[in-house]
Amino acid sequence: MTESVTTLPPTRSTSGFDIKSFLTRHGAWVALALLILFNLAFTPNFATWQTLNVNLTQVCAIVIVGVGMTLVIATGGIDLSVGSLMAIAGSLAPLIFLGKLFPLPHPAVGIALAFVVPVLVAGAFGWFNGWLITRLRIQPIIATLVLFIAGRGIAQVMTNGNLQVFKVPEFQYIGLGRLFGIPFQAVLMVVIVVAAGWMLRRTVFGRQILAVGGNERAARLAGIPVVSVKRKVYWISGLLSGIAGLIVIARNSAADANLVGLGMELDAIAAVAVGGTLLTGGRATVVGTLVGALIIQLVRYTLLANGVPDAAALVAKAGIIVLAVWLQRQNQS
């Protein structure tokens, strides 16, 4: 019934402990805690350094892309191109440090450029997404579908569809290196999550992102530069996709334009949804996205470690997403 749609949501009573309201607000943390407790009890060798590192390395790329996705979704948009942008960055980097694009004066220069240029290129493509959305007023899901399709094509054209195999430890530090025994990529992930979370909460830009997602017309009339805010979030999403692309190829010692970042857009969106960010925009949590990605990863790990096949793990993943989105709906209505 359309008549039931009104402006005021019921405010819940604070008297007594409301389990449902607690779960909708902190459900992701509770789920993560339960998963860890379950594994401590039943999974052999769970409480080891190695298990932690395995899970962290599995989840880093998703979280880094998920942070960008969180910002995009917070403005009420979506970015389907992230996987393809990873492929572009991942294909470009070996071309640079292997000297295939231009002769290198010194190997170190190649490695430095291989970090910087692919990320900037992915950022530029992200900016293009934002341009399509703000200038041509194309809906985000369609605008980013353009590069979802074309981006991987661009990556394949750049590499002639060849698999690039390499062994360059200096470059691969981003995927394989360790800082005080912790994988460098995990450190990078934490830095990105903390920076983005702080930005969203404390800065003018963060407030502007949420205002645009919460009510775009009101935001514009309050003087918020809606167009530039939107372009920036897609640009950031592009940059972060580029970084994730580098991590993936460094970890694999190989770059395959067909495979880098394949299906990443869906993993990232799933992490954002499970983490508790409102998919319609206006309310977002970067730390939630980290927790969401950890939950999805940990469920998969739990099932695999206990002898359940990967195919079944996929079904479990879908189940978690449904549950998370349902909980979110409960909070809304």
Partner: peptide, 30 residues
């Protein structure tokens, strides 16, 4: 008010200071 005024999910404080945010900030931090 509903369509062009309030940002419904934001707090009273955030709504009230929306237009002066740039002036309220130091180096981009509120």
């Amino acid at each position: 008010r509903k369509l062009e005024g309030i940002i419904p999910d934001m707090s009273v404080r955030e709504n009230l200071t929306l237009a002066i945010m740039p002036q309220l900030a130091k180096n981009g931090v509120v």
